[in-house]
Amino acid sequence: MSEDHHHDHQHHHDNRYSDMQARVRALETVLTEKGLIDPGAIDAIVETYETKIGPRNGAHVVAKAWSDPDFAEWLKRDATAAIASLGYAGRQGEHMRAVFNTPDTHNLVVCTLCSCYPWSVLGLPPVWYKAPAYRSRAVIDPRGVLAEFGLTLPETRKIRVWDSTAELRYLVIPERPEGTDGMSEEALAKLVSRDSMIGTAIAGMQP
């Protein structure tokens, strides 16, 4: 629980915890007393996911797939192993599947049940990914959702929506932007945004 969260709910009245806020604090207390968590460790984990792991890992995977056809082939066949070869292994032992955008098909990832997300390659999920609106509407009206993200695809382009589970997480491999021939992997990785690997953007698109 971040401090911000508490502040959001405290308004300018007396201090008061809702049952739910108090329950979370109670769980933290129990677990700290049992030595199962220390608040510093939680902060360190969040920090790692936000800065070190983050979406840069995924961008590396995509840039390598664009530059190295053998790697792309491996990624299609066995994404878990191909991604692990770059040192990005899942913490929950989940399997990865890479879904490649093509001129015919655009891929979009959601988790309708909760917020399963490929943490090892994308870091912490954005708030909207966990929001009920995205989780339900991405399935019912993917084209409308993409338009709200500023991405309008040709009517002829199919949109495939992939529903993540605890065991299987998806990484979208966006199409390589035009005019990027001869660019280094490092330069290519800079064109790959987090959202382009969820499918709510394309590579090289201005955020």
Binding site: Y17, A22, R23, R25, A26, L27, T29, V30
Partner: peptide, 8 residues
């Protein structure tokens, strides 16, 4: 857990 919740 409930006692701690009320205490908080």
């Amino acid at each position: 857990i409930l006692a701690l919740q009320q205490s908080w």
